[in-house]
Amino acid sequence: MSKKVLDALKAKFGDAIEATDDQHGDETAFVKRDKLREIATWLRDDKAMAFDAPVFATCVDLLDWRPVSIPHTPSTNTRPEYDGAGPRFEVCWQLRSTTHRHRIRIKVRVTEADPKVASLTPLWIGFDWQERETFDMYGIRFDGHPDLRRIYLYDEFVGYPLRKDYPKEKRQPLVRRPDLVGDH
């Protein structure tokens, strides 16, 4: 697959594209956080791009991340490796164009101290619940989201369970048998 979308993005926005990756034809663009809304709007409205279908929105927690080398797979990956000090989260949006049949993954890196990023729900309404889920599981704050609250977990839940530092067996029960309280 050609890197049509990535090349167009780089030609149009230059420095706002921090890094790119197109392994196995999966084109990924790492985008500067404050340029996200502008770039996404262009991807949606430009005739040659016409990304009209939101596929998914999610997040990657890079804590404890180790590089994996896959033999015999040429890659033009220019993404910086995570060294434990840089931004911890990668927020991802996958887009698809049903007219041109191409796709692009947009990623924005955010730090643990400031996990804020612009919401793409105003551009593609389909990201509404996906961004709520990302907030629910990773605690990413989406600026401009119309209804950012927990979607799967209950309001009493403290913390974000899919972060790598959430204890695996930590439970936050809503109710327990009165005759068993103190037993666990």
Binding site: R171, V175, R177
Partner: peptide
């Protein structure tokens, strides 16, 4: 399921 969302047995809530 040994994780944040699953109850470790329904007997935590009813006998």
């Amino acid at each position: 399921y040994q994780n944040y969302h699953a109850m470790p047995g329904a007997d935590q809530v009813v006998p």
